[in-house]
Simulated scan of single mutants.
Amino acid sequence: MNSQFAVAVHVLSLVSQFPQHSSSADLAASVGTNPVVIRNICGQLRRAGLLQTQQGVSGAHLTRLPADITLLDVYRAVNGAASVFRIHEHPHPNCPVGAHIQATLDVRFVQAQAALEAELAQTTLADVMGDLAARAG
């Protein structure tokens, strides 16, 4: 898994708390990345229906309350249907391990992906923001 998921949660948390300071430059400064990266992630969040922006107008707004956005929503926005777990594509079919590794790992990977998604579905953006507030003291 790349860092897009974490960046997306960061962006949504910032937008929720500070919509007036949610230009791609402001968000990029907080995340510590390039504004182009932020614009790409914001595009994914917008297409997923989690974020609203207007072309030519600085700023963004959540389309739902933070309590109504789960981490699974965010995960799917930036990862689509792709699994975190990937199997190498061309194991040698005549190798005793290579011939069976994909089928063997597929079962485990499907179970692990389901567990990950179940956990993400139980946590909302509001939960994350509450944790952030507690840490900020």
Rank of each mutant, 00 (worst) to 15 (best):
R46S: 14
V97N: 09
A126L: 02
L51M: 11
L125W: 07
Y75N: 12
V37Q: 12
P19D: 05
D68F: 00
N40T: 09
V128R: 06
L27V: 14
H92M: 06
I87G: 04
L125E: 07
Q44M: 06
A81Y: 08
P66V: 01
G56Q: 03
L65C: 03
M1D: 09
G80L: 10
E117C: 06
D106C: 03
I41E: 02
T124W: 02
L72W: 00
P91K: 08
V97P: 00
H10V: 02
L71K: 00
V84E: 10
S83Y: 06
F109W: 10
A29Y: 03
V15W: 01
V37W: 03
R39C: 05
A115E: 15
G49L: 07
A28P: 03
G98N: 10
S58M: 03
V57Q: 12
L120D: 04
R108T: 11
H90E: 12
V31N: 07
V84P: 00
N94S: 13
A77P: 09
A121N: 13
Y75T: 01
M1H: 10
A81N: 15
N79F: 07
G49T: 08
N34A: 02
S83P: 06
A8D: 01
A118R: 12
R39A: 11
M1P: 10
M1Q: 10
Q52M: 06
I101N: 03
L116P: 02
T33R: 14
C95S: 15
G43M: 02
H100I: 09
A133E: 13
A77M: 07
Q55F: 06
C95Q: 08
S58R: 14
L45Y: 04
A25H: 11
Q44A: 11
V128F: 07
G32A: 08
F18T: 05
R47P: 00
I38P: 05
A28R: 04
F85D: 03
A82T: 14
